[in-house]
């Protein structure tokens, strides 16, 4: 296991035509810290995530994990460096079974993807590991159903299971409880809390619900029009006038 290192950005910027979606964001994320990213719709939260996990490539600036420069790497290469990303809109393999979804994530870690004459089913240990993640996320019962047959809540849980199966150093959740019913959301929050117990992990979370933010956050950063406008302890940030004005103001 590598010693945990910081994830940080330097003047990270992306421009789409004339529109600057993320503007010179410099921020450092440390292990054993859960940072919640807040901001109104269109503030650039998901774009910032995409820049860090590789779905988008920055126009300028840097993304670093310890000494490794991630800025121009493909998402798969960043995943190998330890960046784990879950998506806001459920983004799974819909026709494959729940088990197969998780198994694929486990398999990616095992580096056996290039073997062409081994039967995938003969690699039993991959399947066993996949089952462990399914039991942690309470999805064993639906293991053999295709993902498209799952409820929205179960699909969100599977999103988390996939992320856990990647065993990343950095967990990035983009609104993990979006669209979930009140009785399902706590399961996700418990899982995040469980990940938090491991002090070597960096956790990033985009979240709108203030009760969730209060319960989990060690730190809050606020984005507005692509710029980083506040960064600090939860209570401190929530109390800031600018935050109340641009974000909490219209929510309250």
């Amino acid at each position: 296991m590598k010693t945990p290192s910081d994830l940080y950005t330097e003047d990270l910027t992306i421009q789409f035509g004339g529109h600057i979606a993320v503007n010179k964001v410099s921020c450092r994320f440390k292990p054993n810290e859960l940072t919640v990213v807040v901001g109104p719709n269109g503030a650039g939260k998901t774009t910032l995530f995409n820049l860090m996990s590789g779905q988008l490539i920055a126009t300028s600036g840097k993304v670093m994990l310890g000494d490794t420069d991630l800025t121009r790497l493909a998402p798969s290469q960043r995943a190998k460096q330890g960046i784990g990303r879950a998506f806001q809109l459920t983004n799974l393999f819909p026709k494959l079974s729940v088990l197969e979804n998780v198994r694929l994530a486990v398999q990616a870690q095992a580096k056996v993807g290039m073997r062409i004459f081994t039967h995938a089913k003969s690699l039993k240990y991959l399947e066993q590991q996949a089952y462990e993640y399914l039991s942690q996320t309470r999805l064993e019962k639906v293991a053999h159903l295709p993902v498209s047959a799952l409820s929205h809540g179960d699909q969100r849980k599977l999103e988390v299971a996939l992320l856990m199966a990647m065993q990343p150093a950095v967990f990035m959740f983009d609104e993990p409880t979006a669209g979930m019913s009140i009785d399902e959301a706590p399961v996700i929050l418990e899982l995040i809390d469980q990940i938090k117990q491991d002090s070597s992990k960096i956790i990033l979370l985009v979240e709108h619900k203030m009760d969730v933010v209060r319960a989990l956050a060690d730190r809050i950063i606020v984005l507005h029009n692509g710029e980083l406008v506040a960064d600090g302890e939860p209570e401190e940030v929530i109390a800031m006038p600018i935050v109340r004005e641009i974000y909490l103001g219209n929510a309250a």
């Binding site: 996990s53 990616a108 073997r115 995938a120």
Partner: peptide, 23 residues
């Protein structure tokens, strides 16, 4: 039916996610 085959099915289903989990 090899691990490679399972990756191909994943890529066919959802390229972005296959890339995101490390393929």
């Amino acid at each position: 039916n090899s691990p490679l085959g399972t990756v191909l099915k994943a890529v066919r289903e959802n390229e972005t996610r296959a890339e995101a989990i490390g393929y």
